[in-house]
Computed example of a mutant assay.
Amino acid sequence: MRRVITALTAVTLTAGCTSAPPSGTDKDLTDDWAPLPAPAAYRPVPGVCHEALTQTAGPGDDRPASCDEVHVSETFHVGTPPGAAEPPAPGTAGAKAAYRECSAAAEDFLGGDWRTAGIAVHVVWPTRKAWSGGARWFRCDVTQADLDGYGQSGRKDSLSGELTRPSPLRLGCFDPTVDGQAVTEMRPTPCTGEHRAEFAGLWRAPDVSYEQLQAGTERSAAACRSVIARFAAVPDDSDMQYRSGWISYNPTRTEWLAGERRVRCFVYFAERTLTRSLRNAGPAVLPVD
Rank of each mutant, 00 (worst) to 15 (best):
Q241F: 02
F138E: 07
F266T: 03
T177P: 00
R272H: 12
Q152H: 15
F266M: 00
H195M: 00
T254V: 06
V48K: 05
D32R: 10
R136I: 10
P44D: 05
D179L: 09
E198M: 03
C102M: 02
F76I: 04
T127V: 09
A258Q: 01
A38H: 06
E271V: 09
C140T: 10
V288A: 15
G83W: 05
E260P: 00
D239G: 14
Q152S: 14
R276V: 07
S160W: 03
S73Q: 06
R279A: 14
V48N: 04
A57R: 08
E218S: 09
L169K: 07
L163C: 08
P90L: 05
C140M: 11
G201T: 01
P235T: 00
T18N: 13
Q181E: 14
L202M: 05
R128N: 07
R262Q: 07
R3C: 13
Y242V: 03
P81R: 00
V11E: 11
V178N: 09
G79P: 10
G111T: 03
D237F: 05
W203A: 12
S248M: 00
S19G: 13
A34R: 04
Y150T: 12
P59I: 03
A117R: 01
G118P: 06
R165V: 13
M1C: 12
T75C: 13
G180T: 09
H50F: 15
S167Q: 09
G47V: 05
V208M: 05
D26N: 14
A98M: 03
P22T: 08
D62K: 00
H50N: 09
T127E: 05
W256T: 05
T80L: 06
G133A: 15
E198K: 02
D207W: 01
L29V: 14
R139L: 14
I119G: 12
C49P: 15
S160Q: 14
D113Q: 11
H71I: 06
T252Y: 02
Q152I: 12
I247Q: 04
G112P: 13
D26H: 11
E198Y: 01
A104E: 13
R279V: 08
N280E: 14
V234Y: 06
I228G: 08
D236S: 12
P126T: 00
E69L: 11
R196L: 03
W33G: 05
G47D: 04
G134S: 10
D289C: 08
G161C: 10
R261I: 00
V124D: 04
E69S: 15
H50P: 00
G172H: 06
S66N: 13
P21W: 02
P37V: 02
A40K: 11
S66C: 09
V48L: 06
P39T: 07
Y268M: 02
P287W: 01
A20Y: 10
D289W: 04
A97Y: 02
D32M: 10
G282M: 03
D207M: 06
A34I: 05
A284T: 09
A130Q: 10
V234K: 04
A182K: 14
G161E: 09
E162W: 03
A104P: 12
D239A: 12
K27R: 14
Y242R: 08
R196P: 08
E185R: 13
G154I: 03
G91D: 05
